[in-house]
Amino acid sequence: MRRHLDHAATAPLRPVAEAAWAAAASLVGNPSSTHASGRRARARLEDAREQLADAVGAHPTEVVFTSGGTEADNLAVLGGAAAGAALGRPRVAASTVEHPAVAQAVASLGADRAHWLAVDADGVVTPRALATLDASVAVVSVVAVNNETGTLQPLDAVLAAGRRAGALVHSDAVQALGHVPLVFAASGLDAMSLSAHKIGGPVGVGALVVRRGVRLAPVTFGGGQEARLRSGTVPVALAAGFAAAAAEAVAEQQGEAERLGRLRADLVGGLTALDGVVVNGGDRVSPAICHATVTGCRADDLLLLLDAEGFDCSTGSACAAGVHQPSDVLLAMGRSEADAAASLRFSFGPSTTADDVTALLAALGDLVPRARAAAG
């Protein structure tokens, strides 16, 4: 049997999401058309918008559907940068441990416009870094839950610093939804990014939640279907599946967080009992992610050994054209290149059981020495 311990990459489709998608997929009509079929499609789309907004504590008019978390991040960063530049605020600030969708968008603006916020050894943005924000910054983007380590960022402190600088504050909340409390209205954020397939929704849909009154510039052009901010025909069935998955994930969040927290604690205990294994991320972490460095081995070797034994997990590091690269997140946290290339991420969801954790630890006890031997 296979044991899926890579929910942070993609989660199994929830039955409620599949049912919602299938029901909406049978509708004929473009939601922007004015005929009866189009109006039926539009009504289903708006139902999904309201359901998603309710799940994350937002107003329906604040939900902008996108093709996923990556597009939502790009829209927040680049749309905010363009709007800010027109007002004499040319720079965008982001932490050094952001998802590539944010990090690369910021880097694309050029060195003179990118303002990087340093983190400590746990990957948490430092007060000294936040104190560097000034009136030249248009947007501050700091991830809510790190996609590799699961570290929770101090968003209250980020917000306070952003407000002092007069900047908009965005957070990539893709790994937060369904795992930690997430209420947009109470968060103080100006924008946050979401993705469906991380919580058991369909692949190919996400959302940028934008506070009413906040102005972003569009970064793609066309019909302006989503609040004149994001163009393209909105996939009604995907939106319906996303909303259904979000509603269920949020309804189950507290109980699941407690259950997954216990599983994570068991895994952390077993990992730290292994010689030369260090768990990363500090004390404030998502219950759904456990990131560990296995010194003396290559993460890719261990990943392949685990895969052969039926375990799905990930290195948590970037791969470009099939070439393994050390984790930029761990490098930003001050780790060596060897440690950054020797780390694995295990991530949990509704299908994860105590038996999965027990089996994983038993397998690692046998496989870690083999991986170290392979590394020479």
Rank of each mutant, 00 (worst) to 15 (best):
H4S: 04
D6C: 04
H7E: 10
A8P: 00
A11I: 03
A17T: 12
E18D: 12
A24W: 10
A48Q: 03
D54F: 13
G57A: 06
H59R: 08
S67M: 09
A72C: 12
A76P: 10
V77A: 14
L78N: 12
G84Q: 15
R91M: 13
R91E: 14
A93Q: 10
P100I: 02
A105N: 00
L109V: 12
L109A: 07
V119W: 00
V125T: 05
A131D: 09
L133I: 01
V139S: 05
N146T: 11
A157C: 08
R164E: 15
G166E: 02
A167I: 14
D172G: 11
A173T: 14
Q175K: 13
L189Y: 07
D190C: 05
L194N: 12
K198M: 05
G200T: 07
P202D: 01
G204C: 07
V214S: 08
V214P: 06
E226F: 13
E226Y: 09
A227W: 10
P235I: 01
L238Y: 13
L238E: 13
A246N: 07
Q253H: 04
R264N: 06
D266Y: 06
T272I: 05
T272F: 00
L274K: 03
V278Y: 09
G282L: 02
C297T: 06
L302A: 03
A308T: 05
C313L: 08
S314E: 10
T315K: 00
T315R: 03
A320S: 03
A321R: 08
D328F: 08
V329I: 10
A338E: 13
A342P: 05
F348I: 04
L361N: 10
L361I: 12
P369L: 09
R370I: 00
A375K: 01
